[in-house]
């Protein structure tokens, strides 16, 4: 049985949690006390670091300069980091690559996950076992998954072996060292790992569609595809938005699997935004510049997210 908590709310506002009952002072004090650790951790990781990030991003500071970060004002550079960023084609390429990976992986994961979820809607022999096995990829440590696919895509590895068997002649593509195929291999790994998540969430949504309403639609003469379009999909709308949002957000961060498989290479062929920032941080060590990149991304994401949330709220009002 699945219980949908979605039709009426997308709980990001926390408004539902205000208890109706009057809370005496003792309760209020305890409430403050209990929420204090979480508040402090948020402050510790969000507010102060962001100010620091803003400050450093306006300078040329690097940990190799031998001066403390608080003295970074000595290296003030007149917003050069931001103007440089606008002209940094490697950054924009990485951003574009990240968008490309997202544009292919997320819809693929969605469609595969939805297809599988539809197959799991009613009961059949072996359902429970298949369901558990289907979830394994998303629980494998991403770095380990990266290593699995690193092995699979070696030129003498199993993928080429299977392809050879299928086409009936030797096939020895060096997937990870050719710029064209490395990105494909990386995307296959991402789809392998995260289709189960879509499957899991969408299946929970599908079994939550009231059976009576489906039967009512059938009795009114609706075909399977009509029921799917007019009953299932509208009722799944919120769930689909949640599932897609989760994957879009996570996919944007793509790093672990990809970095283990290709290290961003060959060259910059698989360099996504996280890999790019990592390389600048670890290899080039120009942290003032990294701070600027990070801040731009944070601000852009914040704007996107608040737009998305306000649009969703507006849709909920209507």
């Amino acid at each position: 049985m699945s219980m949908l908590a979605t039709e009426e709310k997308l709980s990001v506002t926390g408004d539902r949690s205000t208890p109706e009952t009057r809370i005496e002072d003792g309760g209020r004090r305890l409430g403050l006390m209990l929420t204090l650790p979480a508040q402090l951790l948020v402050l510790f990781i969000a507010v102060f670091p962001l100010l620091m990030q803003l400050y450093i991003s306006l300078t040329d500071w690097s940990p190799l300069d031998g001066i403390g970060w608080w003295q970074a004002y000595e290296l003030w550079n007149n917003f050069a980091n931001y103007t440089d960023l606008a002209a940094d084609s490697r950054f924009w390429d990485a951003l574009g690559r990240t968008a490309l990976v997202m544009a292919i992986c997320v819809p693929a994961e969605f469609l595969l996950g939805l297809g599988l979820a539809i197959l799991f809607m009613d009961n059949f022999v072996g359902k429970r076992l298949f369901y558990s096995v289907m979830l394994i990829p998303m629980m494998v440590v991403p770095a380990v998954a990266g290593y699995m696919f690193f092995m699979l895509f070696q030129s003498g590895g199993p993928v080429n072996d299977i392809v050879s068997t299928l086409i009936g002649r030797p096939f020895a593509l060096a997937w990870l060292s050719s710029p064209g195929t490395a990105l494909i291999a990386v995307m296959i790994a991402d789809i392998w790992q995260w289709t189960p998540l879509m499957f899991l969430i969408l299946l929970a949504g599908l079994v939550g569609v009231p059976e009576d309403q489906m039967r009512a639609a059938t009795l009114l003469g609706a075909s399977w595809s009509q029921r799917f379009r007019t009953i299932v999909m509208p009722k799944m709308k919120t769930i689909i938005i949640i599932a897609l949002s989760i994957r879009v957000i996570e996919n944007f961060k793509i790093f672990d699997t990809l970095y283990i498989m290709t290290g961003g290479g060959p060259g910059v062929a698989t360099e996504t935004i996280s890999v790019y920032i990592y390389k600048v941080t670890q290899q080039d060590l120009i942290w003032g510049y990294v701070a600027a990149i990070a801040l731009v991304i944070l601000i852009a994401l914040s704007i996107l997210v608040s737009l998305a949330i306000s649009r969703m709220n507006a849709a909920k009002e209507a």
Binding site: E7, P210, D212, Q213, R215, A216, I231, P234
Partner: peptide, 9 residues
């Protein structure tokens, strides 16, 4: 139906 099965959406 017992619960009418109105299409709530």
């Amino acid at each position: 139906f017992q619960n009418y099965a109105i299409f709530t959406h």
